[in-house]
Amino acid sequence: MKKRKIPMRKCVVSNEMKPKKEMIRIVRSKEGDISIDPTGKLSGRGAYVSIEPAVVKQSWEKRILDRVLETTLSDEFYQELLDYVTHQKARQELFGK
């Protein structure tokens, strides 16, 4: 049986290459709206972040996503992202990858 190719993406915070399923995509639309993209298919400028709460906290402290997406993100968005990543991490540990 032929092995399937696993799509890899680079985390903008840690600069680590990981499988796409282990990352979360943050997208900026043409209108300038920023959102979390769990499907990875929304149109717009995207940035990938590892599903690790420590990585999200680091991006919040250093405002890395602000620079990558060329916009200013609110603390509420970073908190929403941290909550989402914490929830997804718990699901992965509970149900496996």
Rank of each mutant, 00 (worst) to 15 (best):
E52T: 04
K18F: 05
Y78L: 02
G46K: 01
E93C: 01
D83P: 10
T86H: 02
S74E: 04
A47V: 01
V55R: 04
S59P: 06
K2M: 08
G44H: 01
L94F: 08
L81G: 03
S43Q: 09
H87R: 13
V56I: 15
F95M: 11
L94E: 14
V12R: 02
S14F: 01
L42T: 07
K20G: 09
V68R: 08
G46W: 04
I64H: 04
R91E: 14
R25N: 07
Y78V: 04
K20W: 00
V13T: 10
T86I: 06
L65F: 09
C11F: 01
T86N: 07
T71F: 08
D33I: 10
T71M: 11
E93R: 15
S50R: 10
N15V: 02
M17W: 12
L94I: 03
E22V: 00
R4M: 14
S50V: 00
H87L: 06
K18S: 06
D37L: 02
L65P: 03
G44Q: 00
R63S: 13
P7E: 11
R67G: 12
R25T: 03
Q92L: 14
R67M: 02
A47E: 01
R45W: 00
A54I: 06
Q92E: 14
E93W: 05
V85C: 12
V13L: 09
E31Y: 02
P53R: 06
L81F: 12
V56F: 10
L42G: 07
L65V: 11
G32C: 00
Y78D: 00
K97A: 14
D66K: 13
R91T: 11
S29Y: 03
V49M: 10
I34R: 04
S59N: 05
F77N: 04
Y78F: 12
C11D: 15
M8P: 02
E61N: 13
S59M: 15
R9H: 13
V55W: 04
D83K: 15
L69M: 12
N15A: 08
E93L: 14
L82C: 08
V27M: 03
I51Q: 03
K89Y: 07
K2G: 05
C11M: 09
K57Q: 13
E16F: 01
V68C: 07
V12L: 05
S35D: 08
C11S: 10
I6E: 08
D33K: 08
N15G: 01
D75V: 00
P38A: 05
V85G: 08
V49Q: 04
S35T: 06
H87N: 09
A47C: 10
S50H: 13
S14L: 12
R4T: 12
E76I: 02
K57N: 10
L42E: 12
P7I: 09
A47R: 03
S29N: 08
K30Y: 02
F95Q: 09
V55C: 07
F95V: 04
I51H: 02
K41L: 09
E76M: 01
E70D: 15
E52D: 14
V85R: 10
A54H: 05
M17Q: 12
